[in-house]
Amino acid sequence: MIALSVNGKLYQVEVPPDVPLLWVLREQLKLTGTKFGCGAGLCGACTVHVDGKAERSCQIPVKDAQGKKITTIEGLAGNHPVKKAWLTEEVSQCGWCQPGQIMAATALLKENPRPTDGEIDNAMVDNLCRCGTYQRIRRAIHTAAQEAGKGGKK
């Protein structure tokens, strides 16, 4: 049995210890918002937060996720400024990469509330989007940064 803490809930799953966290999230926990794109740490579609940091869930054997706080797209509040900015800027196309993009952007903004274009590129360079939504992702991150900034001042 492997114990996982995902989106604030505790789960016990019976899976081989080397199964990547990605597949446990998708198959056992039915959290299919986290996507499979490459299985090799090359695309970022599977990005989740592990103890607040953006990580590739396809590269984490589930045994190593024990005792850590995992957050997936489903665990991010619906009114989260990043999700809102994604809607305002109309980022999504096919949508497959977007949960991973949003998780990466959220982690970036936590560390760096006012990133420059260059800092955004650096942080997001490993999140691929075949639909080419990069320009809008950049804009949405700025929008979210502004919104979060406003909220903070209140």
Binding site: R26, L31, T32, G33, T34, K35, F36, T72, I73, E74, G78, K83, W86, L87, E90, V91, S92, G95, W96, Q98, P99, I102
Partner: peptide, 19 residues
């Protein structure tokens, strides 16, 4: 117009084949 499919794609509930 805003896309009708955006909310589901942003909150992770959009159902793709693999899901």
């Amino acid at each position: 117009r805003h896309r009708l499919d955006s909310p589901a794609k942003v909150n992770g509930t959009a159902q793709f084949g693999l899901d």
